[in-house]
Design a protein around this nucleic acid. Structure first.
Lengths: 208, 208
DNA sequence: ATCATAATGTGAACGCTGTTCATTATATTT
DNA sequence: AAATATAATGAACAGCGTTCACATTATGAT
């Protein structure tokens, strides 16, 4: 009897439907419109029903965040075709920025919102933050490649160097997305960001 | 008749009392507890009364944010005593991190929350974001000093270079405060951040 | 001192939020 | 067909920002 299997399959299908509805709300309406009631409405369920599939909103956001980090990590994959380590690292940085600009609301979920991380904390130390770690690991990999190739010689710690590069680009992205670039004229913001990216690439080579 | 003056003074005093109450709530209870109702309760007023002194919550947050940026800018002042440009810049970075760690909730208000920036947007293009600009200007000043002294030679654009340095430290601070350092073991996080800061200082000198 | 006017403060309400729980409806098993 | 297990829901709670008709208090003019 495949009833048990069908039930399970249907259950995960409904779970996925909830996640997709939430993702759509994120992308189309912004994170502020992602309420349990709005999600419920788009899948034509009662708000209470969602709680049969997710313990609470934080867990739902966590699941969504994990998916989003998967997307980001996948978007990094193409850069492994590039050989020159410095160019490769630069490409990762631009992929990161591209993702941030194309999915600002998902980016917010991944790096700004409290909800998903509270879910991680609530789960205790048993389950680490796997999706975030996996995405970061790709950058570490790129950095290690540069160290092994003898292009980056000032450190042998790929993790620290990767975090430095990540922080640089992440800082730029968040300052922009959180509207803190308002100190610059609107028509100059894009150009300034590109200048910063170019300057950082140069600094990595020769210093400032 | 100094009645007019007294009235005005009393009005600004009450406005200030509201801001102080809000600031206290920020620092002691966290940004989530800063509700109009909680602010009203701590100054023993009705929630509706606050709207006689601030158009809405966003404007209140904006006023608070401006004060906080003033604090940050003031905390930068001591570094101007340092002569060597690289050391000076490094000191600014550490002051920034120090501020972020000592006032995480204010930092959130300054760099993460939407409210205050929505107030800026609502005011239209007439009033720029002065408090943020002023704080950034100090970093530009430090960077310009380094360029003029011939220590930083790879660019003559102090603003771009300042934004690069700001982004680097800001990215590190936000990743930490937004709990995205969870990919590292808890007891290693502090050390890793210091390693990144040290590495960046080194990279500014010689590249990676 | 009395009265009109201006300034200041408030209670109650609206629609929104996440979440819980007793109840109802549906599907499966006996 | 009856009993049981699964799935879904309506209603409620306490919180949120905000508005507005109303009440209170302080000022100015007579």
């Amino acid at each position: 009897m495949g009833i048990r299997e069908r039930k399970e399959r249907e259950k995960t299908e409904r779970r996925q439907a909830i996640l997709m509805a939430a993702q759509r709300l994120f992308n189309e309406q912004g994170f502020e419109k992602v309420s349990m009631r709005n999600i419920a409405e788009t899948i034509e369920y009662s708000p209470a029903t969602i709680y049969l599939y997710f313990k609470n909103k934080n867990e739902l956001l966590f699941a969504l965040q994990s998916q989003a980090f998967g997307q980001l990590a996948r978007s990094f994959e193409s850069v492994f075709a590039i050989e020159h380590p410095a160019k490769q690292l630069e490409a990762v940085g631009h992929k990161y920025l591209e993702f941030a600009f194309q999915h600002p609301e998902l980016f917010e979920l991944m790096f700004v919102m409290n909800g998903p991380m509270q879910a991680v904390e609530a789960r205790g130390e048993t389950t680490p933050w796997a999706s975030g770690r996996a995405a970061f690991e790709r950058v570490v990999q790129v950095m290690q490649h540069g160290i092994d190739a003898g292009v980056f010689t000032r450190t042998d710690n790929a993790e620290t160097a990767a975090l430095m590069a990540w922080s640089q680009v992440h800082g730029l992205a968040t300052l922009y997305l959180r509207k803190r670039m308002m100190i610059f004229p609107e028509d100059r913001r894009q150009a300034i960001m590109e200048e910063v990216m170019a300057l950082f690439a140069q600094v990595l080579q020769h210093g400032l």
